[in-house]
Amino acid sequence: MIGANHRPEMKAKIIITPKKAVLDPQGKTVQDALQHMGYQGVGAVHVGKYLEVELTGSDKESARKQIDEACHKFLSNPVIEDYKLEIAD
C-alpha cells in the first residue's frame, strides 16, 4: 500500500542485542560451532536482531525522537535487550 507519495526518504536502522548479563544460549551455540569449524581467535558471539524502518519526511531529529521512543517501548525490551538506532538517508 505504499504509493508514490509515500516513497521513503529516510531509514531507521535498529540493532537489538541481548544485554551482557542475560543468558544468550544462541550466541554460545554459534560461538561453539565457529570454534568447532576451526575458526581461530573466535570469542563470545551475541545474536540479536536488525530492523529497518522506512520513513517518510525529512526531519531527522523528530524521526529519531519518535523511533527512539518506539525502540524503548516496543521494538526492544529494556529488561533483556540493548539497542542502537541510526537514522540514515
Partner: peptide, 17 residues
C-alpha cells in the same frame, strides 16, 4: 504480562535452545 509491565522481569529462550 511481563511485556505489559504487570509483572517484573522477562522470559527468554530456554538455556537448552
Amino acid at each position: 504480562l511481563c511485556e505489559a509491565g504487570l509483572l517484573p522481569g522477562a522470559l527468554i529462550r530456554n538455556r537448552s535452545l
